[in-house]
Nucleic acid binder design. Structure first.
Lengths: 166, 166
DNA sequence: AGGAAGCTTGTTATAGTATCACGCACTCAC
DNA sequence: GTGAGTGCGTGATACTATAACAAGCTTCCT
């Protein structure tokens, strides 16, 4: 059994700042390797994404991008998000119209998410055997897979325990 | 190995009308079993969804819902789609903001789609072992699964063969 | 038949998500 | 320095979805 949890549900006791710093450092490295620029704008958007540790909406980012009073326009944030997505630095959660930071931009992997509908927390998985199975099913139909997304809705442990306590 | 293909990519030689009729008949049965009403409005939306045999956008449906010259308003079609979705008669493709008819509304199953980004065709799968694997992964994190969606982008056989012929 | 309750639909307005198109500024190679 | 490529600002607009309230229809009870 491969280790499949890329990012577990975040608990309140983790070191937020160092976790964001690490993400930004990884991003810098990824961009350098790709020969692309992590501009201040892109960097700021990525930081905002990580600061929430939850799926973030584009327009929420926009509000927080209040550069010196002036309100940024939508293309600003969408361009940054698109850049980050292509670099594998953020994922888009299709069922939420929201974005979340990817903790492992260095390795190519398919997107597999557990989304708690109670608290909004998200865990990211990367079970290669799942991917392999999907590929095999697709191949049987002559279908060539480019990329796949798995989004699972449910309730995380913390929320279930909180519910049980009532 | 369970049979996992619920709906293969539709070829041009299938009998479209009878396939729509069958879908409507199944819908009628499902609604009866659920004690709900397949009103003319809902029925018409479902028929339009099936008539395309591809993912359909809500506003496209809206245009085609030209009831005697009068143009329907968005809530009309969204309400019908929501009803159909809850009854398991249509699926929503999150990555496309589009809807597609479900050929097996009678059996509960998770949504697994192969989406051809070239021609837009979609195949629906139901590989129970995939679902089981996801459930197992989730359980290991204490996560209780409600429902899951798998959307796979790629190229279908027909499009690949067409490309190869060039 | 009368009438209450609940479901279904119509309608207007608005919220939320995303892209287009144009122009300017910056960078970097030559 | 100049031309190509890239990044960003800005205004407009397209696309997707829901809120809120009113009106009509069904069902079921009496």
């Amino acid at each position: 059994m491969t280790r499949s949890v890329i990012q577990d549900f975040v608990t309140s006791d983790h070191d937020h700042d160092s976790c964001i710093d690490a993400a930004l450092a990884r991003a810098q490295a990824v961009c350098r390797a790709r020969g692309e620029r992590l501009t201040p704008q892109r960097r700021q958007v990525l930081e905002l994404v990580w600061r929430s540790h939850r799926p973030v909406k584009a327009y929420d980012l926009l509000e927080r991008l209040s550069t010196s009073g002036r309100r940024a326009a939508p293309p600003t944030v969408y361009r940054a998000l698109e850049f980050l997505r292509e670099a594998g630095l953020v994922h888009r959660l299709e069922s939420l119209n929201a974005f979340i930071g990817c903790p492992r931009p260095d390795i190519r992997h398919s997107a597999q998410f557990l989304i708690c509908t109670r608290c909004g927390a998200v865990a990211e998985m990367d079970d290669a055997s799942l991917t392999a199975k999907i590929d095999a099913n697709a191949r049987r139909l002559g279908f060539k897979v480019d990329d796949e997304k798995i989004e699972v809705n449910g309730t995380c442990r913390a929320c279930r325990e909180r519910d049980a306590a009532l």
